[in-house]
Write a protein that binds this DNA or RNA. Structure first.
Lengths: 242, 242
DNA sequence: TCGCCTCAAACTGTGGACAATATACCTCTA
DNA sequence: TAGAGGTATATTGTCCACAGTTTGAGGCGA
């Protein structure tokens, strides 16, 4: 983890972003303990802006800071993963109800463009570059719900990515086999079919969640996942049988 | 805004709490601009821990910090208020679906106790002290959903309080006339009637929201609020006619 | 070998110093 | 008087120093 932060001006946000990506991508491993001094040296900055960046990460739940103790990177747990995925589904379901009926033709065109980008990177097996249009696609669908909704959904997206990256690392392509589900979501949105969009979204996340949960807790049953789904998005299961 | 932070140890969290309460209660007014030096002097601390506390508040959206500019307390807006209340309802509806079926007798007893406390302070017109049991009551109902859910719902509760305090200040008692709705929520939870609990919750928040929205934007119609309700908690309106 | 104690090294929390930047005032001009 | 320009002041962003705490390696005793 070597790098240099720029010398001019506002480093805090830059430091925050660098560390955040390192944690989300796993190069700062869950549970790892490190010192402010070491992080500061690696990034080529002083401890003052570093500490501010760490506070931001602490608030987000990506690092744990106990008084006078060193920094610990937040660990992964099945309970946390369940909460992340349930919150995502609950929030995005409501967001989709708000946004899909009011998406403009330009919005839909933008989503089509992002889908095309994903499709392209899929074909060229350039999975690394899919992250950007993938995130933009999911957030683009709910952007119109407002900045608060967007920020919270975006954060949950990133945290879910942390789990996904951690467990799909070995076979990166598997994490993106769900491209057909993106297509289905987009088709439903274009057709202004709100409930169908929600069902596709829930199914999309549930598929990934099941893999993540199974890795975290061998023997995790899809029965439990279905029960959870019925709670955070009632009626979705019934609509999925098509 | 004069005060002294303790001299020993970890001031950052203390500073954060002090400033947070000052903002939520309105003693640091929305839109107000101030300097780090002034805040530090008032609190009797240095700028280093203060800056860290400000970062936490920035992440929470209670202060706005642009590079090289002074601190600005986040302003109130109808768009923000709408997002807060819609997110609350969407999240708590899902949370209630998860928790109400599994509440233990002890949980319910605790909620009854908190209700009784509110009732007491209501009778003695001691509205200031109602805040603590009020918050505990609402969060107690959804605590079992997990720490992530609890933290997010708690934050939304606090931000909603900021709006409520700002607009009910003149007539503090009006903010708590909804005690009957707390009773109805609790009765529904005791009876394990999930959908009814959700309906009571949504109605409870919608009542407050309508007052807040009307103050922020004179002429705000309950028609718009009802439309929003139908989106974030479908079917709730139908259940409210009892 | 294992557990406990001791103590030096490493680390955190905080105040202060200093350069870079923004702000406010004051002057000058039309 | 209103507006533009320039300069002094205030403020931010950062690094560094220092006191207090934690950490961990080595030594001691059983």
């Amino acid at each position: 983890m070597k790098g240099e932060a720029s010398r001019d001006g506002q480093n805090v946000l830059l430091i925050h972003d660098l560390l955040r990506h390192s944690i989300l991508r796993g190069s700062l491993a869950p549970g790892q303990v490190t010192s402010q001094l070491e992080l500061a040296r690696d990034l080529g900055v002083g401890r003052t802006p570093l500490r501010e960046a760490l506070r931001l990460l602490q608030r987000e739940g990506l690092v744990v800071q106990e008084p006078n103790r060193r920094v610990r990177i937040a660990e992964l747990s099945i309970s946390d993963a369940e909460q992340i995925y349930t919150m995502r589904i609950a929030l995005e379901a409501a967001a989709i109800r708000m946004t899909v009926p009011t998406l403009t033709p330009e919005d839909l065109a933008e989503l089509e463009g992002l889908y095309a980008q994903m499709e392209h990177y899929m074909r060229t097996q350039d999975f690394e570059r899919m992250d950007v249009p993938h995130r933009a696609f999911h957030l683009g669908l709910v952007r119109a719900a407002g900045p608060r909704w967007l920020e919270e959904i975006g954060q949950l997206f990133d945290h879910a990515e942390r789990y996904r990256v951690a467990f799909f690392r070995a076979r990166p392509e598997r994490g993106y086999l769900r491209q057909a589900e993106h297509r289905a979501m987009l088709d439903a949105a274009v057709g202004r079919d709100v409930e169908r969009t929600i069902a596709c979204m829930a199914q999309h996340y549930a598929h990934t969640a099941l893999v993540v949960f199974s890795q975290l807790q061998p023997g995790y049953t899809s029965t439990r996942l279905n029960a959870i789904l019925e709670v955070v998005a009632p009626g979705v299961l019934a609509k999925l049988s098509f």
